[in-house]
Design a protein around this nucleic acid. Structure first.
Lengths: 192, 192
DNA sequence: GGAGAACTAGTACAGTCGTACCAGTTAGGC
DNA sequence: GCCTAACTGGTACGACTGTACTAGTTCTCC
């Protein structure tokens, strides 16, 4: 279907709203009605612009992980510039949502949604595909930060990512009071 | 309500069925109707024996994590007996569901369900409570295995658990072909 | 300017969900 | 033996889900 400009805009707006919803509330709260409400469009617009909710989920996921990458490269740049002293801190800030200034409860929800999305790749092919597309870039991000570390880092990017993911899952499931500090500690212990 | 023997049995049977369902399909597929079908009882039996589905979820979760601990202590014992040569292998086999003989697709689903349950603690207080109750024992399990390792292990139990959890989440979301081998490799790299 | 495609928006349908309700049956204490 | 509490199992209700359908409106292109 050859779209008109107005339709293209609306379609993008719906994808954007889906990405916001996904990042804030996780795939378990991703429904056609909620996306429509978030985008401020009627429910029928969702079914009109997308073959199925699954297609929209894939597009929204791609948008979300693109945001991860943007955020990560920005943090990596500020680490290279010398604004972040510790490489463990830089890795955590680069690979997890938000900044250190974010309130804890909000950080917890955002990180929870992030890992719910990661795990949902195990059941949803479209999410799996969207994640697979960005993984090499994330790995490269980790190696870039590791390369600019003051102290040499011997662990591989895959292992570093595993430590970060595991620490995040642990922090969420255990409801630790200061998750960011916990994660920097855990990663720091694994790096030395 | 003073239960009769028959009622006690049926109640336990429902909890057991809930635990089976939870371990096999994850919290997302945990519904009153599914538990009833798994237990072979009518739907109304679930609402009769439990205040709410949430109460049943908490009891089923407790049953599941008790199974984790049983499995882990058994594997740890066989490691101490010398049946498992490598401590990284022992840790993976002890802390993740099933054995090496389990088919990959089944292993993947079981592990996926396990981490879905872990993450769901971030949204469900009853799951969180059930997990918190077993965490010290899991930590002790890790230190026990580490203590009997041939090569000395300097990482803390918390860090080791983070590596295992992160590697598992990565293996699932990336759909790696031989996840158990991947996890043993990743943990081995972090331990040395 | 008119035909037809693109779009908007409301509504309806079939499915699953947790929970409530209500007759009928079984079993334990007097 | 009987009364009452425990239990069984079927059904129903309201809420939510994805998707389909049907009008009416707006825009583009010839």
């Amino acid at each position: 279907m050859r779209r008109q400009q107005r339709g293209r805009d609306r379609r993008q707006e719906i994808i954007q709203a889906g990405a916001r919803l996904l990042a804030a509330a996780g795939p378990g709260n991703f429904s056609a009605r909620r996306v429509a409400a978030e985008a401020g469009v009627p429910l029928a617009a969702v079914t009109y612009y997308f073959e199925s909710l699954d297609e929209l989920l894939g597009l929204a996921t791609a948008r979300v992980v693109a945001g991860w990458l943007d955020h990560g490269t920005r943090v990596a740049q500020s680490f290279i510039n010398g604004d972040i002293p510790d490489s463990a801190t830089a890795l955590i800030l680069a690979l997890l949502p938000g900044s250190a200034a974010m309130p804890v409860t909000q950080w917890r929800l955002a990180t929870l949604a992030r890992y719910e999305l990661l795990l949902s790749a195990g059941r949803s092919p479209v999410v799996s595909a969207a994640l697979a597309a960005v993984r090499p870039a994330l790995n490269e991000l980790v190696t870039t930060i590791a390369k600019h570390s003051a102290t040499p880092i011997t662990l591989s990017a895959a292992t570093i990512l595993a430590v970060i993911d595991g620490a995040a899952v642990g922090a969420i499931s255990e409801n630790v009071p200061d998750p960011v500090a916990f994660m920097i500690d855990t990663l720091g212990a694994a790096l030395r």
